[in-house]
Structure formats: structure tokens, C-alpha cells
């Protein structure tokens, strides 16, 4: 081949390359869009598979819910009611993703079982991309959940945490916080049943730490241990059991149960217990809680 021919051919080749790159430039925008659509479709498929093996036992294969977990193919999830109820400020995708990844560790207080944490970030088994696949799958119920002509089966609706049934629990009925300067003599008669409801409610959350004694002293045996301490500890001389319990709820730092082995209840003289119950309950709530605890 003559050198001139080679030069012409080579030049033609480079122009051909430019043409090809130009072709890619023209198609690139739509190619990227198409890939995104396809990716979301396949993400949905993977999400469906993960849902079937991990979520369908409680939430129902078609998202209809069961006695163990609420329906997800549920108008209330998509029409904004649930988000408003939960005071969630973000979008629905974030809400669902967050609920799956972090779980609802406290929901065992008002469901037979707590919603587990699924995301690896929170110690669960699923990778972040699997959580997103699942979220896409749940989000895909939107049109069928909101289809008014053909509404989905909802076997079980969401529960607002803390309230088992309408009217069952009303914290701070009187509207006045009890404050810290209270003695047992000021309190009305307590109702242990309502006390238990309060104790296990999500609003106060006592049972999240005390039930089973994992984080804080065990609920079971409270009265017995309180009696022993009041009788034996000179710091508690002259206390009644009720007074001891009232003080423990409202001002946890005054008397702190000593740390035992791996159980750490305080650090530097500050109890790990929440310090603001005096602002969150009224005299009746306090009396009910004490009445419940005296029976434990």
C-alpha cells in the first residue's frame, strides 16, 4: 500500500471514530435514562424476592397484613395519613427505607413481635442496596393501594404506637405536669392496670429498658428490692416504698442502684434513665405507675 493511501485511510478512520463518538453523544442521554428505568425494574424484582423470603410471613405475601404486622398495600401508607400520624417530615421513600433498615425496636410493646432491624448498618442481615430494592417494591403498591374503585384487602391496619385501642390510654389527663417537688401524700389513689398500660406504652417507654432487666433494673421484683433497700440503706432512712419509687421516677439521680458486673446504670453520678418524667406525667399517671410497680 502506498504511503499516501495509508495517510488517506488513516485520516478517514479518525473521522469515522469522531462520527462514532458523535453517535454516542446523541444517544447517551436516552441510554442513561433507559438504564435507570431498567435498573429500577430489576430492583423491583429483587425487592419482590427479598420481600417474599423475609417480610411476607408477617406483612402478607400481597402486603395485606396479618395479626403480626400491618398491611403495606394500604391506602393510609400512601395518602399521607401515616406520615402525618408519625410526624415524619421527610418523603415516603425515606420513611419506608428507614423503617426497614432501622426496624422498630420498640414495637414489641404494641405488636406480638417487634419489627426487626433489617439493615446491615443497624446490625441486620440486608445490605443497603437490598433495603432500597425492598423499598422500591413496597413503593410499587402505590397505585393499587390508592385505587378507590378496587381497594386492596387490608387485614390489619397500622397502630399508632402507645395506644392499643382508641381511648385506652391518655397520658397527662389533667394537663398539669407533676413536677419534681411531690410527695406521695399529694397523690390520688393509683390504678395498677392503667399503670401497666402506661409502663409498657411507647410514650413513656419504661418497659423498653426495664422489662427483662437488660438495660435497667428488672421490672419483676421491683417492690421486693425497693423494700430491701429502704430497710437497709442508711441514705434511705425514713423513706416509704412509695416515696422511694416516686423519687426514682422523677429524680433518678438522688438514689442510683449500684452498677453490677456488666450492668451499668450510671456514669459519674448521673443515672442513664431519662430525667424528664416530671414534665411528662401528671399526678394520676404517677400514682398509677407506683401502684403497678408495687405489685411487681
Amino acid at each position: 500500500m502506498k504511503i499516501e493511501t495509508k495517510i488517506i485511510l488513516g485520516t478517514a478512520m479518525f473521522f469515522a471514530i469522531l462520527l462514532m463518538v458523535g453517535w454516542v453523544v446523541i444517544k447517551e442521554e436516552s441510554r442513561m435514562a433507559e438504564f435507570t428505568t431498567q435498573f429500577e425494574g430489576r430492583s423491583l424484582e429483587r425487592g419482590a424476592t427479598v420481600f417474599e423470603s423475609n417480610c411476607s410471613t408477617c406483612h402478607g405475601r400481597q402486603g395485606q397484613g396479618s395479626g403480626r404486622a400491618p398491611a403495606l398495600n394500604n391506602p393510609r401508607l400512601f395518602n399521607g395519613e401515616r406520615l402525618a400520624e408519625m410526624k415524619w417530615a421527610g418523603g415516603l421513600f425515606d420513611y419506608i427505607e428507614n423503617a426497614i433498615a432501622a426496624g422498630r425496636p420498640n414495637s414489641g410493646a404494641y405488636w406480638p413481635e417487634a419489627m426487626p432491624t433489617w439493615g446491615q448498618t443497624y446490625g441486620g442481615p440486608l445490605r443497603p442496596d437490598q433495603i432500597q430494592d425492598l423499598t422500591r417494591f413496597v413503593m410499587n403498591w402505590e397505585s393499587s393501594a390508592l385505587d378507590e374503585a378496587n381497594p386492596p384487602t387490608v387485614n390489619q391496619d397500622f397502630i399508632l404506637p402507645g395506644i392499643r385501642e382508641e381511648g385506652d390510654l391518655q397520658i397527662m389527663a389533667s394537663g398539669a405536669p407533676v413536677g419534681t417537688a411531690v410527695t406521695f401524700g399529694d397523690l390520688p389513689a393509683g390504678d395498677p392496670a392503667r399503670g401497666e398500660t402506661l409502663y409498657t406504652s411507647n410514650e413513656l417507654g419504661c418497659s423498653s429498658c426495664h422489662l427483662g432487666g437488660v438495660v435497667a433494673p428488672n421490672t419483676v421484683g421491683t417492690a421486693e428490692r425497693a423494700a430491701q433497700r429502704v430497710a437497709s440503706d442508711p441514705a434511705l432512712a425514713g423513706y416509704t416504698l412509695e416515696q422511694y419509687l416516686v423519687e426514682s421516677i422523677l429524680q433518678p439521680n438522688i438514689y442510683i442502684v449500684p452498677n453490677e458486673g456488666s450492668a451499668v446504670y450510671s456514669a459519674g453520678g448521673i443515672s442513664i434513665m431519662q430525667q424528664n418524667y416530671s414534665d411528662r406525667i401528671d399526678a394520676q399517671d404517677l400514682a398509677d405507675l407506683v401502684a403497678y410497680l408495687l405489685g411487681q
Binding site: 495509508k6 485520516t11 478512520m13 471514530i17 463518538v21 453517535w23
Partner: peptide
Amino acid sequence: LPDVLTNEVLWIGAVTFLLIVLTV
């Protein structure tokens, strides 16, 4: 210079073009 270099530039053009056609 110039024969082999010209030849190689031609090959670069041809193979690159082929590669891009294949990948597109």
C-alpha cells in the same frame, strides 16, 4: 519515519474504530 509510523497511526485508527463499533 515516515513508513512505519504512518502504518502504526493507520492501525491505531482502524483498531480504535473497530473497538468503538464493537462496544457501541
